[in-house]
Simulated scan of single mutants.
Amino acid sequence: MPDTAPRPEPFTPRASPAALEDLRTRLRATRWPDAPDDAGWSLGTDLAYLRELVAYWADGFDWPAQEAALARLPRYRVPLGGLGIHFVHARAAAPTGPVLPLVLCHGWPDSFWRYSKVVPLLTDPGAHGADPADAFDVIVPDMPGYGYSERPSGPPLDSIAVAGLWAELMDVLGYARFGAAGGDIGSHVSRYLGLDHPGRVVAVHRTDGGLPVFTGDPADLTPEERAWLEGGAAWGAAEGAYAAMHRTKPQTPAFGLTDSPAGLAAWIVEKLRSWSDCGGDIERSFTKDEILTNVTLYWLTETIGSSMRMYRANGAIPPAQHARRVEVPSGFSLFPGDIVLPPRAWLDRTANTVRVTEPARGGHFAPFEEPELYAEELREFFRPYRAAG
């Protein structure tokens, strides 16, 4: 690496006691809305559950302990594109064969947190009952405006631009060839890594096909694809108000969500419940500590507004970009609790799809909900491409 190249520096953030006391003060002073007695989760976040969660956040949640647990991941920051980018870089432990570098791309509403459970399973499979030959070097960057990466002061970056940054990051780390994987917005980022850097990306793994974007003649689609498009539109009408707000007026909710920790929790918790494979009981998929670790990361870094603005950037991506087909080998693990699951015909239409599986459990946040299943999906998919890394 030339002397002028960006140099990653170790990064271990520590929240100040004053910031944590301010958080507790705000939580205890929450001004609660009313709700119909039988509303539950039908109108959005359940009032009774959020009261319980906020009470625990104020007087039971141990952020320093969670912060210390996250600090066990090897984390760095590096200047890229004029921004300080935070990332996990965990090298393979005791590999017995070729090591494949793997960049894991997160989505919203999360950060590197999405992959915090799965990193050790991928870097040291032998210690977790799997084949040591399947070890990866794992890189998990926070997108600009998420987690501990800096917030753009100008226009937000779209998924295409973020993919370009991740290709640059892999170059800085000395990886000429690598695999890419992701879900949610991270699915789009990994897709664009395959589209724009096919000479470097050996294969792409995704947990979804993205919400459908099709501008051609519907008659050219299979019946299953047309049904999926209709299902996606119905899902957007019933569940997509948050995304419409993010795409159009993200600054308006940012005021309230940046000022009120209870409001921030309500915005995020409803998505964790709706999109996970929890059967309506969020704590089947996430403990209170796990939920609050994710939410506290957003609170302390003040990134809810900047994270939402990325939807506006992605909404402006031209239709021609959505129509491009990924030609590098692509695999999909479609977890049953995820949203708007695509048919195989669509996956074949949009990518060189070589493998599609349907794991038994898990949802939109599969790497966190079912880390062992997710790790095995990655090991099996990338196994044929290790020698190319």
Rank of each mutant, 00 (worst) to 15 (best):
D38C: 06
E239W: 12
R273F: 11
L27P: 14
A35M: 04
F214W: 08
A35V: 05
A316G: 03
T287Q: 01
T301W: 00
R191F: 07
D110R: 01
G232R: 04
G107F: 02
L229H: 13
M310H: 10
L173Q: 06
L195S: 14
G174I: 01
P8W: 11
G60V: 01
R177Y: 14
G263C: 02
T215P: 00
A345Y: 14
S330L: 04
A203Y: 03
P384E: 03
D22I: 09
A127W: 00
T357V: 15
D131F: 08
F11R: 05
W267S: 14
A69K: 08
Y374P: 10
L300P: 13
E358A: 15
A266D: 08
P125W: 11
G232M: 02
A323D: 13
E168G: 09
H106Y: 05
L347I: 06
E239S: 08
G182C: 11
A375M: 00
D137S: 01
D259L: 10
R273A: 09
L347E: 04
S306T: 13
S42K: 09
G164L: 03
V118C: 06
Y115F: 02
A167L: 03
F332R: 07
G280Q: 07
D46I: 10
S116W: 01
I185C: 12
D158Y: 12
T296N: 01
A316H: 09
L20Y: 09
F332T: 06
V138N: 05
A167K: 02
T45H: 11
G240L: 07
P144K: 04
D110Y: 02
L50D: 12
G97D: 15
P141G: 06
P98Q: 03
P120F: 12
G129Y: 11
A262G: 07
E380I: 10
E372R: 01
I304M: 12
E369F: 12
D37Y: 00
G236P: 01
A234V: 13
A58N: 07
T293D: 10
R284M: 12
I291R: 13
Y242D: 10
I317D: 05
L169K: 13
E327Q: 15
V88M: 10
A35P: 01
G362C: 06
R324I: 04
K249I: 15
T301G: 03
D124K: 00
R309W: 04
R349A: 15
A366D: 03
A19H: 13
A254E: 04
A387S: 04
V162M: 06
G256K: 14
L229E: 12
D131H: 12
A48Q: 15
V202F: 11
A366R: 00
A351E: 09
V213L: 02
V88L: 12
A351D: 03
A387V: 05
F136Q: 11
G209A: 11
E369I: 12
E168Y: 09
A323G: 09
R24V: 11
T207L: 05
D158T: 07
A130Q: 13
E224V: 02
A234R: 15
G84W: 05
